[in-house]
């Protein structure tokens, strides 16, 4: 194990420790490379501590979507406000999953038709 491998393994284990898992998987797209992960606050940062592991790309999309959520209201009931934002964050994630599933389904259909055509020719 040379110096570079050693340093990389050290970075990897430190990162996995921060992520809290030995086998990280992005909940929305299935990415599993340890270098690509961040913790995403479902209800937005500062509103609730619940986090999920997301890859950089998905996290970027989800965080951008959160910009469109209702802004902070100091007069609002904090508990209801938190639950509401959590649900909005959950919907964003599910939307991504739905898109992903749709995309995956279409790919399968496309592949199936190509394979059928290949078999006929």
């Amino acid at each position: 194990m040379d110096k570079i491998e050693l340093a990389r393994e050290r970075r990897k284990q430190r990162r996995l420790e921060v992520l809290g898992t030995n086998n990280p998987i992005c909940g929305t797209c299935g990415e599993s490379r340890w270098q690509c992960f961040e913790q995403h606050h479902v209800a937005d940062y500062g509103r609730d501590d619940t986090t999920v592991r997301e890859c950089y790309n998905c996290h970027r999309i989800l965080s951008d979507n959160q910009r469109d959520h209702p802004s902070f209201n100091a007069a609002a009931d904090p508990l209801l406000d938190r639950i509401g934002h959590f649900l909005l964050g959950l919907v964003d994630m599910l939307r991504l999953i739905v898109d992903k599933l749709h995309q995956f389904g279409m790919q399968l259909i496309e592949r199936a038709s190509i394979e059928t055509e290949g078999a006929q020719t």
Partner: peptide, 11 residues
């Protein structure tokens, strides 16, 4: 302060 649950060992 919230503590994360302890992690299992690496391989």
């Amino acid at each position: 302060a919230k503590k994360k649950p302890p992690m299992s060992a690496s391989p």
